[in-house]
């Protein structure tokens, strides 16, 4: 009786080991692709990198940040949609500066308040100066700026997205 018990015990070890090995193989063969499958959108490279025309430079007022909105169409998975951007164009003697309207703190939309001479953020009371510099509040850095160029009097900005 004890002998067959010993045989049984060793067989059990063998079967357990086989089952574990088979399980590990199946887990890896399906598990690793499954992780890639779930993380797939995060691993995708394609973003956008394009020069977007904002119109004639002369049409923007001088020394007052002027909002300008445009859209880019994008493909995300099966979904083809457009994404809106708002930028502020600031034109002065030094040239032209295009600021992002996204607060550098947590991405709320800032608005230009002429009476305060500042961009204010509705979320955590941040304030930015006309040049985008932080005047008040939690933002870690000034408003983002876009690379600009002027072709035939038309202002273009470079929109880059990872």
């Amino acid at each position: 009786m004890s002998e067959s018990d010993a045989v049984n015990a060793s067989r059990r070890k063998f079967v357990t080991a086989t089952a574990a090995a088979v399980g590990a193989v199946m887990g890896t063969v399906v598990g690793v692709p499954a992780l890639g499958y779930l993380a797939s959108p995060a691993l995708e490279a394609g973003g956008t990198d394009a020069w977007v025309p904002l119109g004639k430079l002369d049409s923007f007022p001088v020394a007052v940040p002027t909002p300008f909105s445009f859209t880019r169409s994008r493909v995300n998975g099966w979904d083809k949609s457009t994404r809106s951007y708002t930028v502020y164009v600031l034109r002065d003697e030094a040239g032209v500066k295009v600021l992002s309207s996204r607060c550098t703190h947590l991405s709320c939309q800032v608005t230009w308040q002429a009476d305060q001479n500042a961009f204010t953020c509705p979320c955590h009371d941040a304030k930015f100066g006309a040049q985008g510099e932080v005047l008040h509040g939690p933002p870690p850095k000034p408003l983002d700026t876009y690379e600009t160029k002027i072709e035939d009097g038309t202002l273009l900005i470079r929109v880059v997205e990872a």
Binding site: P33, A34, G36, Y37, A39, S40, P41, L43, G77, W78
Partner: peptide, 17 residues
């Protein structure tokens, strides 16, 4: 249909799953 096409051609290992 588009989402299944996306699984087959866009998502990593979607064809396998």
């Amino acid at each position: 249909y588009d989402s299944v096409q996306y699984i087959m051609t866009g998502v990593q290992f979607g064809w396998l799953i």
